[in-house]
Amino acid sequence: MTAAADVHVRLVDRLEASGALTPGWRQAFLDVGRHGFLPDVFWASTGDGYERCDRAQSPGRWLELAYCDVAIVTQWDDGADSGQQREPTSSVSMPTMVASMLRDLDVHEGHRVWEGGTGPGWNAGLLARRQGAHNVVTVELDPEVAARAAANFRALDAAPTAVVGDAAHGYLPGAPYDRGILTCSVREVPPAVIGQIRRQGVLVLPFAPLFGGGAVARLTVADGAATGPFTGSSAFMRMRQQRYQAPPVDDYLPGDWPGDAAQEYTTLNPLEVVDDWLASFVVGLAVPDVYYRRSDGGGMTTLWLFDTGVTSWATVDFVDGARRFEVRQSGPRRMWSEVEESFQWWVGEGRPGFESFGLTVDGGEHRAWLHEPANPLPSPRGRG
């Protein structure tokens, strides 16, 4: 057995043993190697940042990372050649995440599948191997990323239909689909994506509220609406069309801080909210139009909270060892009060996990719920 085949089989065995990879997917994962979708130079998310790996310089390490359970970045900053890597914008996801989302997709023989976000193409290649290439359509917005994926597909026995286009618009020429999957996160599910899925079809996607956190949603489609539970934590790059461009702070606070905001205090450590992926996700579901910025310095961390309507703002200061934390709030909405109330509601419910929540999307409206659709998350009283 070659070195590549050896590490490949060991990864598949680990995925199957963990339960992420269901038996029906084993052969596809064995037949479609991950290393065939990776460039000669990539950056592996190893937990301590990103490790750059050059195949020409370190072929053994390159192959090892190709079959590690880590995400691998293949593009930064939408391909801008600025020499400054600020934001990863294309990647091959963690094998565990790929396998578990395909498990959630629950494909059966003959199902037609649409994928939004081709990236380097590994996920689409797996789907084509399992479903048959004629049953898989994948859409990629970035022409350069799409071109690299097309080159990767040429090494397969049969390639999916690959389209350069906007995944937010779906791909109606191939509709309707029995299954749909997004490989980028959204904070709003595009109506066109739902509309192209058959009744009782399934749509799997990473959902990431503006405030923070993220989870995979498994939605069942009916009559233009979609509803279903979250199945576990996720962290994906956001769909390009849904990257939020925040207004300048001066639009909220035209004068000097603190403006008209009176001094208040809270006993809730603000870092308990934003440094916990689950907590920030729940808060984001409850207050979907609130975001924050963080500044660290001088032994203090300040959270700036804003609403997307540009009506209200708040600051909360964290100082290590303090028992209470200074708050300033301005505008018709009490930004920190909303966040704190949502957090305390979650604590009062026993800190339920990702799988306890769900999402309903109907006519563009998004409603998060706990345990069942009839139990929507409460709106904070601090909304004004």
Rank of each mutant, 00 (worst) to 15 (best):
W313C: 03
G125Q: 11
T118W: 02
S234F: 03
D69H: 10
A28D: 09
G180N: 06
Q57W: 08
Y50R: 07
A167H: 04
G363V: 03
S379Q: 12
R52C: 02
V139N: 01
V361H: 12
T96C: 05
N375V: 08
G358L: 10
A4D: 11
G382R: 04
W114I: 03
A128P: 02
R148M: 11
W25C: 01
L305D: 01
M335N: 09
G213E: 12
L63V: 14
W336A: 00
W122P: 00
A322V: 14
E349V: 00
S233L: 03
E326R: 15
A226H: 04
R367L: 10
G110Y: 09
G83H: 07
P229L: 06
F281G: 01
R26C: 03
G228H: 07
V164E: 15
E338G: 07
D166P: 04
D289A: 04
V287Y: 01
T308A: 13
T138Q: 02
G284H: 07
G36K: 06
V164Y: 08
W304E: 07
H366A: 03
G195L: 08
E140N: 04
D13C: 08
G49Y: 15
A159D: 11
T118L: 09
G47T: 08
G350K: 05
E51R: 14
Q263E: 12
T89H: 08
L11F: 13
A147S: 10
M237A: 06
A124I: 04
H366S: 06
E115Q: 14
L303N: 00
G19H: 09
V145M: 09
Q196K: 14
P173M: 14
D77K: 08
V98P: 04
T267I: 11
G180A: 15
Y171G: 02
R238C: 06
R240A: 13
L141R: 14
P378F: 11
A149Y: 00
R351S: 11
A147C: 07
A215T: 05
G384V: 14
Y50T: 05
